[in-house]
């Protein structure tokens, strides 16, 4: 073996060991369980081939939760990035208060979404009805936790509140890396603000947008805490996201761990494919520009 490889192995060993034990092994174990009928309770189980995966194809509950998650991801990717970018552009164009605003908007990102969820539950269930009464705003008097039509938006509000700041920071950093002369030059050429943003700023921050969308995609597919603390997936399973469906399949209902593992594999493959496609497409776009 080459000497450099020996040193490499030595340096990587501690990390690789812990990573193998606590990530790789359980992940491969999960794949193996997905081919069995282990119910999570019985010590014994049998190999059942792909039958768990075949069953998934017409598991209405799972498909519904997958679609619900997809809808959530779609909203999140668009709103998170649009709001974050808007805030970043406005903050950067202001001459005063940049730091204060940045600090305030990032603050919710520091908070656990379990605690944040409980606080918002207070807002939705106690503050909203009182506001509705005081100011006569009917929409605030809806059941924001109990009516699935509205609770989708409650979850969305909580998630955006807790995550927009992070993307905003990314976009601010990207904007700051644009050389000032370029914008000056555009102004001299008679471009207005929007034209400057579109023709000068956009091509320069497209790389950050790729990152922003990637972050949105990969985190919102895994969403759990927000839903867990706000609606618990309910009423019934009306707001159940995939990760919660997996959790419940494994530990509640009939505790079919093998089946739940198959769902987890599907989730992993979905995230891998979608983010892969996104990166591929957007990288190509970046090169074109």
């Amino acid at each position: 073996m080459r000497n450099s490889n020996k040193v490499l192995i030595l340096f990587c060993l501690p990390a690789f060991l812990l990573y193998s034990i606590f990530v790789l092994y359980p992940a491969l174990g999960g794949f193996w369980y997905s081919l069995t009928n282990w119910n999570g309770l019985n010590p014994t189980y049998d190999y059942v081939g792909l039958s768990n995966y075949l069953e998934l194809l017409d598991d209405k509950v799972f498909i519904t939760s997958l679609l619900f998650t997809a809808k959530y991801v779609l909203y999140m990717v668009v709103l998170q990035n649009v709001i974050a970018l808007t805030l970043a552009i406005i903050i950067e164009s202001l001459s005063k208060g940049k730091k204060v605003l940045r600090t305030i908007f990032f603050f919710p990102n520091m908070i656990s979404m379990i605690v944040g969820g409980f606080i918002w539950m207070f807002i939705f269930t106690k503050v909203f009805p009182q506001l509705a009464e005081m100011f006569g705003i009917a929409i605030l008097n809806e059941s924001w936790i109990g009516n699935p039509e509205y609770s989708f938006y409650s979850i969305l509000i909580l998630s955006l509140w807790g995550s927009v700041g992070y993307l905003m920071i990314i976009y601010i950093a990207a904007l700051q890396s644009i050389p000032g002369q370029l914008i000056e030059a555009a102004k001299i050429d008679g471009a207005n603000k929007l034209q400057t943003i579109w023709h000068v700023v956009r091509p320069l921050i497209i790389n950050s947008i790729t990152i922003g969308i990637f972050v949105s995609l990969s985190t919102s597919f895994k969403v759990f805490d927000q839903v867990y603390s706000l609606t618990g997936g309910g009423p019934g399973r009306a707001t159940q996201v995939v990760s919660m469906n997996i959790y419940m399949e494994a530990f509640a209902y009939q505790s079919r761990y093998g089946y739940a593992s198959a769902k987890a594999i599907i989730l992993f493959v979905t995230i891998l494919l979608i983010t892969g496609v996104q990166l591929f497409v957007m990288k190509r776009k970046e090169v074109e520009m």
Binding site: P148, P235, G236, A238, A252, Y253
Partner: peptide, 20 residues
Amino acid sequence: PNGVTDETAAMLQEYYAGTK
């Protein structure tokens, strides 16, 4: 049977919510 009670619980919530 295992799981029937959980299913009933979830379904009755949705029945009230009007989604089922």
